[in-house]
């Protein structure tokens, strides 16, 4: 479902003396449907960079990233947008929303984007918010004023509203209490059972051991090790 071939990444900082930072080189691996792969490695090893490249958020310098039959590295914006709408979900570490939009609309938006009716999208959004223990009195409010943990749960509800065939999870259980962590882990297990291919970053070792089928240490792809 997700396949990376010889991916490398450098950052060129034009306004800081054109410094070139090599982050990753020669990354190749693949993830099958229903499989969950954890990216590991010390902070700064390039886990998030790699994940952002798979999402098309960062531009790979060379190589190819295939999600289904789309090569993210060489696709037009509209192809990537369609892919993100229908195929590839992403749970980021931070929630980014239009201010003043009610939480329930924030969560139902990905469903509205794939053509689900307003009523059905709202019902699914409410079920997820309930499951993630967001009090009902908050649903009509914008999540911008919520606590960190609440925002993260809204973010997760939003990302799990539509059932994507491929998902990227950047620390989905960080800043959650035990009850909600359990709910999120169950959502991940349900997604796997549906055949979703997942790549995740988990600093929570127990969570990683429970949902991930294998680990990939990203530090092996750092250019110094390769050279």
């Amino acid at each position: 479902m997700i396949e990376l071939n010889n991916i490398s990444k450098t950052f060129t900082l034009h306004n800081q003396g054109a410094a070139v930072i090599e982050v990753l080189s020669d990354v190749s691996f693949s993830v099958e449907p229903g499989e969950c792969v954890a990216l590991t490695g010390a902070s700064g090893a390039g886990k998030s960079t790699l994940m952002r490249m798979i999402y098309g958020n960062y531009l790979a310098r060379s190589g190819e990233i295939r999600i289904g039959d789309v090569d993210i590295v060489r696709s037009e914006p509209r192809t990537i947008i369609a892919l993100r709408r229908e195929v590839l979900g992403y749970v980021s570490q931070f929630l980014r929303v239009v201010p003043r939009v009610p939480t329930v609309n924030v969560v139902s938006e990905p469903l509205r984007a794939v053509g689900v009716s307003a009523t059905d999208a709202k019902a699914r959004a409410e079920a997820l918010l309930l499951q993630l223990n967001i009090p009902e009195r908050l649903w009509a409010l914008s999540p911008t004023t919520f606590s960190g943990g609440e925002q993260q749960r809204v973010n997760i509800a939003r990302s799990f509203a539509h059932t994507y065939p491929a998902m990227l999870l950047d620390e989905p259980t960080a800043s959650l209490d035990a009850t909600n962590r359990e709910v999120v882990l169950q959502l991940i297990e349900e997604a796997k059972a549906r055949g979703t291919a997942i790549i995740g970053i988990f600093h929570d070792k127990a969570a990683r051991a429970r949902v991930c089928d294998r680990e990939i240490d990203v530090s092996q792809f750092s250019p110094e090790v390769a050279a």
Binding site: T12, L13, H14, N15, R52, G56, N57, L59, P77, I80
Partner: peptide, 21 residues
């Protein structure tokens, strides 16, 4: 030119980098 979040988060051209930063 390209995907909005890619240009804002990983700008390639010197001027785009300056604009974003």
């Amino acid at each position: 030119a390209g995907l909005t979040d890619q240009i804002l988060d990983d700008p390639q051209h010197a001027y785009s980098q300056l604009l974003v930063s």
